[in-house]
């Protein structure tokens, strides 16, 4: 199976080629009910686009949540 490298939350990660953002969320163990924001190369990928959004080699991906803050 061919793979690509992406930068996920600042770290290099190998994922299967033609993986979607939704696939990546499964791999990174984001629970389905959990609300996360996904940003690929500075573009926000909304939940309804995550199945069709196919990641490319060297994409910069951020998966973000809300933590405590003042």
């Amino acid at each position: 199976m061919s793979t690509i490298s992406i930068i996920l939350n600042g770290e290099c990660k190998e994922i299967p080629a033609s993986a979607s953002v939704a696939d990546l969320l499964v791999v990174t163990e984001v629970v389905e009910s959990q609300k996360v924001a996904v940003v690929v190369n500075e573009h926000i990928v909304r939940p309804d686009k995550r199945n069709s959004f196919i990641l490319q080699d060297q994409d910069q991906v951020e998966i973000l949540v809300f933590a405590g803050g003042g």
């Binding site: 600042g10 924001a37 973000l64 949540v65 933590a67 405590g68 803050g69």
Partner: peptide, 10 residues
């Protein structure tokens, strides 16, 4: 209430 963005960490 205020919250802050943070990278997801399982």
């Amino acid at each position: 209430v205020t919250v802050a963005l943070r990278r997801f960490n399982r």
